[in-house]
């Protein structure tokens, strides 16, 4: 938006790479990621914080990117599903989702996986009940919930509580 008098410059570190761009302050972080940075792995469901499809990590914590403005994230680090693994080198959680058949249409999946990886780091995967409670911010219209819990349990069993054994592309 070069001629917009309200436009502000935002600096973000997205998936390990620093990027700077001008935005209209109305742009949500979700829209900036999808429309300006062309990272369309992050999905838009409700736009009101209710479905979790837009979940990303902001400075290492999971958030819903539809309820924050890009300008509010200025200076922060963002990790999206694109930063987690690649098609030939999947993140263990992505592998587990494939292995456990934890999706049907796949629309909620990037958000589910971003939440699931955060859940490992938060240490809230001691039981299926705990996993379900702490995944409650991610809805799945296809009802793949049982397999999503299977996938998370599989990875949780294979990593320590801090999630330290889970490598991300950023660390590589």
């Amino acid at each position: 938006m070069p001629n917009d008098p309200h436009a502000l410059t935002v600096t973000l570190r997205v998936n390990g790479e620093e990027t700077r761009f001008d935005v209209d302050p109305r742009t949500t972080l979700l829209d900036a990621l999808r429309d300006r940075l062309h990272l369309t792995g992050t999905k838009k469901g409700c736009g009101l914080g209710q479905c979790g499809a837009c979940t990303v990590h902001l400075d290492g914590r999971r958030i819903v990117s539809c309820l924050t403005l890009a300008v509010m994230a200025d200076g922060a680090s963002v990790t999206t599903i694109e930063g987690l693994g690649t098609p030939d080198a999947l993140h263990p959680m992505q592998e587990a989702f494939v292995a456990c058949d934890a999706f049907q249409c796949g629309y909620c999946t990037p958000g589910q996986i971003m939440s699931a990886v955060a859940l490992l780091q938060e240490g809230h995967c001691g039981s299926d009940e705990e996993i379900r409670e702490h995944m409650s911010g991610n809805l799945c219209r296809c009802g793949a919930y049982a397999n999503i819990v299977d996938a998370i349990r599989t990875v949780a069993g294979a990593t320590d509580r801090s999630g330290a054994a889970v490598p991300s592309r950023e660390d590589a």
């Binding site: 979790g52 902001l58 958030i63 819903v64 309820l67 859940l119 809230h124 911010g137 991610n138």
Partner: peptide
């Protein structure tokens, strides 16, 4: 209250 994502914000 709310969801883990919202509670982080």
């Amino acid at each position: 209250s709310a969801s883990p994502q919202v509670r982080n914000m």
